[in-house]
């Protein structure tokens, strides 16, 4: 199980990347900052960075809104 934003639990799958995790969370916003266990992941590595079971992931949506 992967804990996201200390709020949601997403079932871990072997070979799961950051991109897969964002899809599983239905996070469609294109501009996010992702940290895994406190370490910032460069955006260009979202397709290749493998998430491990029990990782703590933070996905910060960068959006200014109204």
């Amino acid at each position: 199980m992967i804990r996201v934003n200390n709020k949601w639990e997403i079932e871990w799958q072997p070979g799961m990347t950051i991109r897969d995790l964002l899809v599983a969370c239905k996070f469609t916003h294109h501009y996010v900052a992702v940290s895994v266990n406190g370490r910032l992941v460069p955006a260009e590595e979202y397709d290749t960075w493998l998430v491990a079971d029990r990782d703590e992931v933070q996905v910060i949506h960068i959006i200014a809104g109204g």
Binding site: N5, N6, K7, Q58, V59, I60, H61, I63, A64, G65, G66
Partner: peptide
């Protein structure tokens, strides 16, 4: 305007 900071990012 705190919706994402609060409800999504949980900051």
């Amino acid at each position: 305007w705190l919706i994402f900071m609060d409800a999504v990012n949980n900051q």
